[in-house]
């Protein structure tokens, strides 16, 4: 319990990941699935950011010419978060465009209903 209280940011990150993961897996609505995916990714990013942060240190930008390593936090996790955000945005864009295509064809966002419609139209093999 003590460890959980001390690392509450990491705990929150894991809970967010779980919420996102289950939404992506079990929700029937495509848009909500995508929201779930974004929550899942945010959980990972929060975890990374919490990992890179060291209490009492500054952002890794040289201040007043001080170059000692001890003054700054680790910049690598922040770089990873940025890369991850770019990946997540592009995946979301592609998925949204697919969702629009499906909606135009079947006029619903419910994935189960789309399966049924697709089967009725004899598309599913």
């Amino acid at each position: 319990m003590q460890a959980l209280m001390e690392n509450y940011v990491e705990a929150a990150a894991v809970i967010l990941f779980g919420v996102g993961f289950t939404t992506l897996l079990f929700h029937r609505n495509l848009i909500k699935k995508l929201i779930g995916m974004n929550i899942m990714d945010t959980g990972v990013f929060l975890f990374l950011a919490a990992m890179g942060y060291i209490r009492g240190r500054h952002a890794p930008i040289i201040e007043n010419g001080v170059e000692e390593v001890e003054r700054y936090i680790n910049p690598v996790p922040a770089g990873l978060v940025l890369t991850g955000i770019v990946v997540s945005v592009s995946v979301t864009a592609v998925m949204l465009s697919l969702t629009i295509r499906l909606y135009k064809r079947y006029h619903t966002l419910d994935l189960d209903a789309i399966y049924v419609l697709s089967r009725h139209q004899g598309e599913d093999r």
């Binding site: 992506l24 897996l25 990714d41 064809r105």
Partner: peptide
């Protein structure tokens, strides 16, 4: 054709779950 979009969405959802777990 219609069913490729549906197949792609199915494929992507599973793959996104996989990517999320891999990233974690």
């Amino acid at each position: 054709i219609g069913r490729t979009t549906l197949a792609a969405v199915r494929y992507m959802i599973l793959n996104l779950l996989g990517s999320g777990l891999f990233l974690l």
